[in-house]
């Protein structure tokens, strides 16, 4: 088995916010009927997470479930655990209409951190999403686009945001965030 490497190999940069790739993150796409209690139970038996609320995140001991759409969840776990989670979920969900895929190596994850409203400031330049704190609160998943590519954004706190995008556009998103956080380019909107 070849050694896994992340999209931009852990690159980081500093402007008026710090941009860093999160490295290897385990991610599993789970699709099914989120309103079905059998589905919820099967997912809980493997991840020990309840189902997240609409656009929310549910955290277990080591895993997190992100709400991606009315029938889709993204399981975030340790990179080396992802394949085992897929096996366990497939077994637990057998007999139900479902889809479970390990997408760990098909996604790139970035963290943007900074003080005050700097993070929202840097992100708002490259996405049409309304990033005002009362609209996009902490712990809410917002799927949108960043410049020309799809991405999911979540504020872990006012000082840090996590971005998940396709691996094939990882370099693009990293460069975009670096350019957007160039010192002196603050807009001062928030």
């Amino acid at each position: 088995m070849s050694e896994a490497v992340s999209a931009v190999q852990g690159a980081s940069a500093s402007g008026f916010v710090d941009v860093a790739e999160a490295g290897l993150v385990g991610m599993v796409t789970i699709r099914g009927d989120l309103g079905d209690s059998d589905f919820a139970h099967a997912v809980w038996s493997v991840t020990h997470c309840g189902l997240p609320k609409k656009r929310g995140i549910a955290a277990g001991e080591s895993d997190q479930l992100l709400w991606m759409s009315p029938d889709e969840l993204l399981l975030v776990c340790a990179h080396e655990e992802a394949e085992a989670r897929v096996q366990a979920l497939s077994a637990a969900l057998s007999g139900q209409h479902h889809l479970v895929v390990n997408v760990s190596d098909a996604r790139a994850v970035f963290r943007v951190s900074g003080s005050g409203s700097a993070v929202r400031e840097a992100m708002a330049k490259v996405t049409p999403a309304d990033l005002r704190p009362r609209i996009l609160g902490v712990g809410e998943v917002r799927r949108t686009r960043m410049a020309q590519v799809p991405a999911a954004i979540c504020f872990d706190g006012e000082d840090q945001a996590t971005i998940v995008c396709f691996r094939s556009v990882g370099t693009y998103v990293f460069d975009l965030l670096v350019r957007s956080s160039k010192p002196g380019s603050e807009v001062g909107h928030f």
């Binding site: 759409s69 049409p128 917002r142 949108t144 686009r145």
Partner: peptide, 11 residues
């Protein structure tokens, strides 16, 4: 109406 997000037309 599914995810409750106010989307810009470019999304």
């Amino acid at each position: 109406p599914y995810c409750g997000v106010a989307c810009d037309e470019t999304e």
